[in-house]
């Protein structure tokens, strides 16, 4: 266990070296937040209630989902496919390390950094914009509500890791990743709550793991799920997490057999 914490620490130091990259990344994230904020503020200019949200609730959704996004979706595992293809995976394979844990703890360092910055930026934006937003109210099962966050983080980690494993079979991993990224942008619920979409479409999406990454956790924190809904949803998130965990284990076993440790 200690080895992975040390790894996280060193990953953190390493991340700080690339300051410009990080700053630009944060700038872009803040821009996306502003876009969503202004859009919805404008939409509610004429209307009192839309899609089951009042103005303050919608804006609350935008901010909360944005913070959750910085925890759940930030990641270093994007490197994994490249590492496999360059043969540098050998460095990890020849050590008493679990590759799955290795990248997770590197991600933790990244997520912590991003989360800290998000909270800071949010505080700053609140001062400037002074938006009127609803106060989040997770309800009685407050403790249980917190549980959804690590689950969503793990779920996304496994999905992302899976895409990284594609590196065992092809160097062209950027294309599938791009597709995943596009899907996540809209389906996970960061620009708008899924309630905006036609009910039929929502029903289809609820059969995928994506809403459980950002949309559902945000709903919990807004207090819109009700106790049964919350427990049920967390249960489903757990199911998806386990499913992807099993897929990852399977794909890893297959991938290791084809690993050629080549590439320079």
């Amino acid at each position: 266990m200690k080895k992975y914490l040390t790894l996280a620490k060193i990953s953190w130091s390493n991340g700080l070296v690339y300051r410009l990259n990080f700053v630009m990344w944060r700038v872009r994230l803040v821009l996306s937040l502003m876009t969503a904020y202004f859009l919805w503020a404008a939409v509610f200019g004429q209307h009192q209630e839309l899609f089951g949200y009042t103005r303050d609730k919608m804006l609350a959704y935008i901010f909360i989902s944005w913070v959750i996004q910085s925890l759940v979706l930030s990641s270093r595992s994007i490197d994994l496919a490249g590492i496999i293809n360059s043969g540098d995976l050998s460095n990890i394979l020849t050590k008493p390390l679990s590759n799955l844990k290795y990248w997770f703890f590197r991600d933790i360092a990244d997520k912590t950094l991003n989360l800290l910055f998000s909270v800071g930026e949010l505080a700053f934006l609140f001062l400037i914009l002074r938006p009127e937003i609803a106060v989040p109210a997770p309800g009685n099962l407050g403790m249980l509500a917190i549980l959804v966050l690590p689950l969503a983080t793990l779920l996304y980690y496994f999905i992302n890791y899976l895409f990284g494993l594609l590196g065992f079979w092809t160097p062209q991993v950027w294309a599938p990743r791009f597709l995943l990224f596009v899907i996540l942008q809209f389906v996970a619920g960061s620009l708008f709550p899924l309630d905006v979409l036609p009910v039929g479409l929502q029903n289809v999406l609820n059969w995928t793991p994506f809403p459980y990454l950002i949309y559902f956790p945000t709903q919990i924190f807004l207090g819109r799920t009700g106790n049964i809904g919350m427990v049920g949803g967390i249960g489903l998130t757990l199911v998806w997490t386990v499913i992807f965990y099993l897929i990852v284990k399977l794909v890893w076993k297959k991938g290791i057999l084809v690993y050629s440790a080549e590439g320079r």
Binding site: Q172, W174, A175, P176, F178, L179, F181, V182
Partner: peptide
């Protein structure tokens, strides 16, 4: 890749 990009 190209097809996937197009789809994306």
């Amino acid at each position: 890749s190209s097809v996937l990009f197009l789809i994306g």
